[in-house]
Design a protein around this nucleic acid. Structure first.
Lengths: 344, 344
DNA sequence: TTGAAAGCGCTAACAA
DNA sequence: TTGTTAGCGCTTTCAA
């Protein structure tokens, strides 16, 4: 920069002002300097600038990774949300630092405090709601995609999971299902709310809950597959399954298919998230839609407001069901399998 | 830091040395200072440190975004590779800056030079091979996932696309297919090589190439769907399709299914990449496997060597076919559709 | 083994 | 409108 200053015959300060497009500078000088900068292919040292300004223009996005397969970034929906966040951040002139954190590790949120950026977006509360609460008290520059909780000290954006679970289950009931299984991770707040919606729908319809139809697992595809096999092995009747994510739904359909059980003929399937592939699966998957574009935008905007020192409210996005083939009504049938293997 | 120095009754320099675990310091002093730092929850200012050291410990990963849907980060395989890269980078103590760039834009690679990090990993050459070459000449801290090219001035890691295309097509031929369509993006180097493999397999088997069976499109799911409809509308006979990615394969199967064409009974399908979902699609998808874990690790290691000033060679990873149901032999059948709509 | 001091490249008071 | 100057928080010579 001092070189450039010499070349232009002005001081460093003037160059700095010219390059940052300051108001209080002679337009002629500014253009001269900018031309010179371009000519010599000079670029501001962002590190120095950020250091000086005590800002990084960088946002850290944390996405939970799957414990079992660390190199595999979790849920496709989160990835699609990530795409939306990435675009918004870019529009606002921020960089995106991506960090896949395994929240199953003992230290859990301890990694958060090592982060050095203007703000943090956590995609999915995972198992760390309390940790987030604690962290947020000292570092308010945090927004989280997830479920609204009673005791929530951080800003949270997410879908209406209770309603989503309700819609999904009601749909299966309306479609004629009497024995509706539910498979997914109920340990995480979002999953739990979807489960509550499921319970409520059953209750509203006067259907008694059957614990043998409920399986709480992680969110990996193989777990969806295995859980479906487990369900089959229980020998309990079921004619519909509500899966707490589309990835699980796909794996489940795959498992059913391998056992000669047809979807939707024998069993109706409803997933969650309406990931882009849901429409292109065979059969296409009925799913609870969450708008990732709006979601990502909201997360970014709220975080930026937070960084700006503004007060910010959490937001729950409306949610709707997209009906596709996997739950289409056909000639009814109910599956019973291997009543032998009847452990838990 | 100066506060900490006062507390410890030493100079800033000593604190700095203690915290960086320098050799030339009294172990007693070091431990005292480290204890103090922990007690007061003091952390080094990374920005200042990086600025001083002229390093960022940050690697930028560039992943091409789909032109049509900017918020949707492209191919699932790239995402899985990204996961692997992320883990390796973390292991090596680097941060990962993620940038989704639309290489269809007119400026194309111009964005690269604005990047301010220790090195760049580009996932997929996309349409910018020349731009990468040019960039690499002045900025050698660059590795690219993609295809080996004759004139390549950058370090490149990727699968053996020619062989992959060959294996996929040979498999379809062995399985009895006589009329093998190919759908995918041949504009990008990787796609083109896979296509060359396809051509060679046909040639080896003495099957004449039929341009009506070839469709070059982008890599979005809807394009795979549309391309399949286009193929059907051409009214040309086909009993197998080689799709240049698994995402396309899924969309294609979906399109066929909607037209009452069964996979693999009527048409055999082979995809590419062996993404984790391939095994859980219905039917499960035969696909050319590329090891994302090793791939990611290689990319990171080579980049770090490059940053370290070492000479680095490009590497082509071995490639193999994973056979699943989508290409399983059944009672043979050949589809002909709508010979009416025979334009193009 | 430790301290004093310089300086990384930039911005922003303050002065001119 | 521009220049002078100080200083962000750290590391690292060099000297003690």
């Amino acid at each position: 920069m001092s070189d450039l200053a010499k070349l232009a015959g002005v001081s460093k300060a003037t160059v700095s002002r010219a390059l940052s497009g300051s108001e209080l500078i002679n337009p002629a000088t500014r253009e001269k300097i900018q031309a010179l900068a371009k000519q010599y292919n000079y670029r501001l040292n962002t590190q120095a600038r950020n250091f000086r300004l005590k800002e990084s223009l960088t946002i850290t996005v944390i996405i939970p990774s799957a414990e079992s397969a660390k190199w595999q970034i979790s849920d496709p929906f989160f990835l699609e949300l990530l795409g939306s966040i990435s675009v918004c951040l870019m529009e606002k002139g921020h960089e995106m630092l991506l960090s896949a954190v395994d929240f199953h590790l003992p230290d859990k949120t301890s990694g958060l405090s090592k982060i050095n950026s203007d703000g943090i977006i956590v995609i999915g509360q995972s198992y760390i709601h309390k940790g987030l609460n604690e962290y947020a008290r000292s570092h308010p520059q945090l927004v989280v995609w997830g479920a609204r909780m009673e005791d929530q000290d951080y800003c949270c954006v997410g879908g209406d999971n209770l309603r989503g679970g309700l819609l999904a289950t009601q749909h299966l009931i309306e479609r004629g299902c009497k024995h509706i299984a539910i498979i997914g991770d109920r340990e995480v707040p979002e999953g739990n709310l979807r489960y509550q919606g499921y319970l409520r729908a059953l209750q509203d319809a006067g259907i008694e809950r059957n614990p043998a139809l409920e399986i709480s697992i992680g969110s990996q595809k193989n777990e969806g597959y295995d859980a479906t096999l487990l369900l089959l092995s229980r020998g309990v009747k079921f004619d519909g399954i509500f899966l707490l994510s589309d990835a699980l739904a796909m794996a489940s359909i795959s498992a059913l298919d391998e056992h000669g059980i047809a979807v939707p003929k024998d069993v109706a399937i409803v997933g969650y998230d309406d990931i882009s592939l849901a429409r292109y699966y065979t059969p296409s998957i009925t799913s609870v839609h969450q708008d990732r574009e709006i979601g990502g935008r909201l997360l970014v905007e709220k975080l930026l407001q937070l960084i700006d020192g503004q007060e910010v409210e959490s937001f729950t996005m409306p949610t709707n069901l997209v009906v596709r083939k996997s739950s289409k009504k056909t000639t009814q049938a109910t599956v019973t399998q291997h009543p032998a293997d009847n452990r838990e």
